[in-house]
């Protein structure tokens, strides 16, 4: 039988993989992907709690997180493209200046 704790552990594992990815990857787009992974693990926990507590409020929060994630990806990738046009690199170890 699959209980709440199984979903919670799965969510924690996905979150940990996301954190490790952010720390060890150097390509900024891969780092964005890891952020999306962490957001997804939190979404999974929200839906699991919503299911086991019998409220749909958790699912509505997940809906809001979808919108936030879409906005974040759009703005972040636009910033990456603008930075690449100026400096020709997206390696985070090379990115030292915010001003062009």
């Amino acid at each position: 039988m699959v209980g709440m704790l199984d979903y919670a552990i799965l969510s924690a594992v996905l979150f940990t993989v996301g954190v490790v990815g952010i720390l060890i990857r150097r390509n900024i787009i891969t780092i964005f992907m890891c952020i999306e992974l962490m957001l997804n693990s939190v979404n999974l926990l929200f839906v699991a709690f919503s299911r086991y507590m019998g409220h749909v409020d958790g699912q509505i929060f997940v809906f809001f997180i979808f919108a936030i994630a879409a906005a974040e990806a759009a703005v972040g990738l636009a910033l990456v493209v603008a930075y690449f046009k100026l400096k020709e690199t997206i390696e985070v170890d090379e990115i030292k200046l915010l001003k062009g």
């Binding site: 199984d6 799965l10 594992v13 996905l14 990857r25 890891c34």
Partner: peptide
């Protein structure tokens, strides 16, 4: 969950 964790590890 196995597929999800495997894919997440491969992303990293």
């Amino acid at each position: 969950s196995f597929i999800a964790v495997f894919a997440a590890v491969m992303v990293v």
